[in-house]
Nucleic acid binder design. Structure first.
Lengths: 210, 210
DNA sequence: AGAAAAAAGTTGCAAATGCAACATTGATTT
DNA sequence: AAATCAATGTTGCATTTGCAACTTTTTTCT
């Protein structure tokens, strides 16, 4: 599958064609959107890094998804079944495009160029999201912390086409992403180093197995 | 968001218009497809129930996804990062539509009516899959077996608009779906009954909390 | 209807994980 | 440059979970 969707081009077109779309800029740690308050919103992260975060009743924080440049997110992708708070938080300065999902297939299709093109490329955009989510599920269904770590590292290694790669997360956030206790994860990480499975220098990891 | 995609109608059209699509029928327990052997395949389950199942190296079985009528699945949704086997297994008699994802946006768009319409409705189809996957992740990131069970029951209750609902799984399969040990799950289920959170008769569950 | 297989239910014990409370290092702010 | 805050790293202990080995009940097959 080859995704030939070019978001840069699309944005250029939007800027002098469609006025139903909003572009906003957020500073580090600002809340970009809340999944409880808004509905039917569809967002594209043009620039930056952000996380979809859930806080449960016991105060546990979970990074539900991690977004980087060109990722899509928003409430259309989410059916709320819990009463937990779901927030998208900027981890650094972020540029975000907002608009209403309904607009895509209804009004704009025939009117503005931006929406027309987006409608065409939408399957690709969403599809790449599906593959991300499936990968995430693959990780989360692993039975032990060790298997989750190894699974995650293997994925990063495959993506970067190298045995050595850097973590996109702090270790604290990685624990929240893998949905395990941080100290338990640190313990397991230490064992993986001691047993010679991995090497770690700063936020760079090297796989030594296989 | 309202999904007005009518798959029945679409299939009727396909049957006398497009010859690039295959319809096959599977008996219970047959393997519908393997995610390692094939690539770029896109499937619609017209009728029946099936599971996407993973067997890991320790012999653990995980139900990665559960499909029922009108669900879509296939390798296009999946970037293989592991060497575990991923199979779609029929849990009962299934009718399945197969075709190649690439066809959707390339050749068929201008030629056959079936693909043309499917291309239009594809965002909706995939989007509903994304909401399912997000719900799944929400469950899997819960920290304890108890929270997973309660989360799952709450979701079923919300969907059926009733405090009483029936489980779509056997308990054995539910454990594989929630990615926990079956006996540990049974123990927790017993506690939930004893502590008055739920009632259970056969495969019917009633929520007693809130 | 009877046999066989699958699912449900139970339990003791070992291992993994979470929790809490720290010390240490590194980064950011004033 | 010092102070503050965040991230990393460590450990003991309690709790949860997984594993293995069963029995009982329900379903499926011939």
């Amino acid at each position: 599958m080859d995704i030939n969707f070019n978001i840069e081009e699309l944005i250029k077109k939007f800027e002098n064609s469609c006025h139903r779309v909003q572009k906003k800029i957020f500073a580090k740690n600002e809340v970009i959107t809340s999944y409880i308050k808004k509905r039917n919103q569809f967002c594209i992260l043009i620039n930056g890094n952000a996380d979809l975060v859930r806080y449960d009743l016991n105060g546990n924080r979970t990074i539900v998804e991690h977004f980087s440049t060109n990722d899509v997110f928003g409430e259309v992708f989410y059916t709320i079944t819990t009463n937990n708070e779901l927030l998208v938080e900027a981890r650094e300065k972020c540029e975000v495009l907002f608009y209403c999902y309904n607009d895509i297939h209804t009004k704009c299709r025939t009117t503005c160029k931006f929406h027309q093109e987006l409608a065409e490329d939408l399957p690709e955009l969403i599809l790449s999201k599906v593959t991300d989510l499936n990968m995430r599920i693959e990780l989360l269904t692993k039975r032990s912390t060790r298997d989750k770590l190894i699974g995650y590292f293997t994925m990063l290694s495959t993506r970067s086409l190298s045995k050595t790669f850097s973590l996109p997360f702090s270790l604290t956030d990685l624990a929240d992403y893998l949905s395990v206790d941080r100290s338990a994860m640190m313990r397991e990480l230490k064992l993986l180093k001691e047993e010679g499975f991995i090497e770690k220098n700063g936020n760079k990891i090297t796989l030594l197995y296989k």
